[in-house]
Design a protein around this nucleic acid. Sequence first.
DNA 1: GTCTATAAAGCGATAGAC
DNA 2: GTCTATCGCTTTATAGAC
Lengths: 186, 186
Amino acid sequence: MARKYSERGEIVPVLAEIFREHGFSGASLSEISKRTGLGKGSLYHFFPGGKDEMGQAVLDDVANWFELNVFRPLRESEDPAAGIDHMFKATARFFHSGRRICLVGSFALDETRDRFAQAIHGYFAAWVVALEAALRRKGFEGTRARETAEDVVAGIQGALVFARSQDDPRLFTRALRRLQRQTEAA
Amino acid sequence: MARKYSERGEIVPVLAEIFREHGFSGASLSEISKRTGLGKGSLYHFFPGGKDEMGQAVLDDVANWFELNVFRPLRESEDPAAGIDHMFKATARFFHSGRRICLVGSFALDETRDRFAQAIHGYFAAWVVALEAALRRKGFEGTRARETAEDVVAGIQGALVFARSQDDPRLFTRALRRLQRQTEAA
DNA sequence: GTCTATAAAGCGATAGAC
DNA sequence: GTCTATCGCTTTATAGAC
C-alpha cells in the first residue's frame, strides 16, 4: 500500500488535536490510530518511544510555531508595537478565536507536567521574556514590563479556560482585546 | 472492622486532591482506593455511580465552598470593597497560595467538560456574576464591571496555570495582587 | 512502511461472603 | 460497611508476516 505520510511531521498536527481534546492521559492509542488512519505498527514506526514521544513531538511542534510566529516577531520587529500587535493576531489565529484550548497549558495542570517539565516551562518562559523585551523597547519601565508580560501571557491562558467553561469563544476574543489594551499605555 | 468514614463527605476532599493531581481520566480507582484507604467495595457503597459520581461530588463540594466563602461575602458584604478583599484572601487560601491548581479549570479543558458541563459552567458564571455585582456597587459603571469581573476570574485561572508551568507559586500570589489592584480603581 | 495478532497489565465495575 | 475475587474490556506495547 502507498504510504500515507512521508514523514512523521505530517502526523503531528493530528496528534495535537487529539491531545487537546482528551488531554495526554485521556488520549488512547486506538483513538490515535483511528484518527490518523495508521495502524499501531506504523505509529510505533514513526514514534518508537510510544505516547511519550508523541507528546514530546507535539510540544516541539507548538514551540516551533510560536518561535516563528510570535516570539521572533516580538524580538525582531523594528517597531515593538507592531510586534506586539502581530502577537495578538497570531495568538487569536492559533487558538481558533477561542475554540481551541492550549495544549501546553493542559499538559501543565496535571501530573503530565512532570514528564514534559522542560518543554512546558520553556514555552511560557520564552513567551514572557520575548513580550517583556518588546514592552521595554516600547517604553515600559522598571518591573512594569515584566509584570505586564506575565499578566498578558497568564491572561490568555485564563481566557481560554474561561471561554471553554462557558462554551463561548467570544469571551476569549474580547478578553484578548482588553489584554492588548494593557500593552498600549505608555 | 470499625468504619473509617461515617459519611462520604469526609472522603470527598481526598478525591479532590487526587483529581487535581491526575485529572479526571488520569485518576484510577486503584489510586483512589490506596489514598482513601477504602476497598473498591466501600467506594462503590458511597458512590454507586462510580467515578462519575465521585467527580460530581467533588465539583459540588468546591461549588459549596466558594458559595460560602467567596460568592456570598461578595453579595452580602455591606461594604463591597470588603467583600472583594475577602474574595482575594479566600482565593489565595483555597489555592494554597499557588501550589494547588483549580480542579474545575482542569475539568474544563478536555472532554471531561462534557460530562460535567453544568457544574463547570455554573462555577465560573456564579463567580463572575457575584464579582460584577460587587464592582457595580463599588461604582464601576457600564460594561466595565462585567469586563473587570471576567478579567479577574480568568486572570486567576491563568495565573494558576502559569505558576504551575514554572513551578513557582509566587507567580500566582503576585498576579493575585495585581488583579486586586484592577478592582480598586474607582 | 503497513498490517494483524497478541501479550501483559491495568481499567472500571460487580458479586457475594462476612 | 468492608473486603476479596473476578468479570469483561481497554490499555500500551511488541512480534512478525507481507
